[in-house]
Simulated scan of single mutants.
Amino acid sequence: MFDLTGRTALVTGGGRGVGAGIVRALAGQGAAVAVNDLDTGRATSAAEEVSAAGARAVAAPFDITDAAAVTQGVATAADALGAPFDILVNNAGVPAGMGTVPFRDMDPEEWRPFVDLNLYGSLHCIRAVVDPMVEHGHGRIVQISSGAARTGLAFGVSLYGASKSAIEGFVRHLSQELAPTGVTVNSLALGMLSNVVPDGATDAAVAGLVRSVPVGRLGEPADVGAAVVYLVSDEASWITGQTIGLDGGATTR
């Protein structure tokens, strides 16, 4: 089950953290993977890691907020792997230098990076891969989202949450347009992950985060990778238009 041999995947923001975990999981199940990242070094390093393990992977460094760069980058990566993409994982979603700032303290110019990355960036990537998916009668699009899209939080992530809410709404509509074509579209709303714990966090602070998760631990990139593998597999062909909470039981709805 969950064999991805012969599939070709593009993972945005795949050079580190959750993205790298997704890359490793897809490659481990047999997919050829293009590792996108804004940073060329991170993309190259992640691609080389999975290639060294025997998988096919290429670095695909480009800025997903730049429509022309996405079109060119997707075409170049697909040519390098020898096939159009039938899997897209939109994982890139944290603007460079993102901090936690209350809305009232934000300058309007600080709103745009969240929308450009989480909404327009995802739209650019979907638009670049969706037509070949439809033409071939098979495709899997997975949007990495956040619990902040559905739950109001008081610590300064309002624009991040709003931009994630926007792309989740788009996913629901797109899933219905594409459902007859063999292309599925779903979201994973992530909860508290170990890789986002701030450097220097005290043991007490980490313990407090762990207590907020019913299963008693923080999530790992491998947890996200496993969920993505399922959603892009043939076995998940009857799941589309869903936002699945991947958060250790922190939300139930």
Rank of each mutant, 00 (worst) to 15 (best):
V171F: 01
D107P: 03
Q242F: 07
I244L: 15
E177M: 03
N91H: 06
R16K: 12
L246C: 03
V89W: 01
Q176N: 10
E168T: 13
A205N: 05
D203S: 14
G15Y: 00
A27P: 06
L38P: 02
V18D: 00
A47C: 14
T8F: 00
F114W: 11
D63P: 06
D247H: 04
A227E: 01
V142C: 09
G169A: 10
L188V: 15
P221H: 15
V23I: 11
S163I: 05
G28C: 09
A46L: 05
A77T: 07
S145L: 14
V23L: 06
G169Y: 06
N118T: 06
R24L: 03
R217T: 13
L178W: 08
G6S: 05
V206F: 00
V50E: 01
D63C: 09
R253P: 01
A96C: 05
I144H: 06
M133V: 01
V197A: 10
Q176F: 14
E220K: 12
D86K: 02
E220I: 02
A96P: 02
V224L: 02
M192N: 09
R24D: 07
Q176I: 07
D203Q: 11
D247G: 04
L178E: 04
N195I: 13
E135R: 15
T202I: 03
L10D: 12
T151D: 08
G225A: 10
R217V: 08
M133R: 07
S158E: 13
T71H: 07
A236Y: 15
E135I: 05
V70Y: 00
F85H: 05
A154Y: 11
H173P: 01
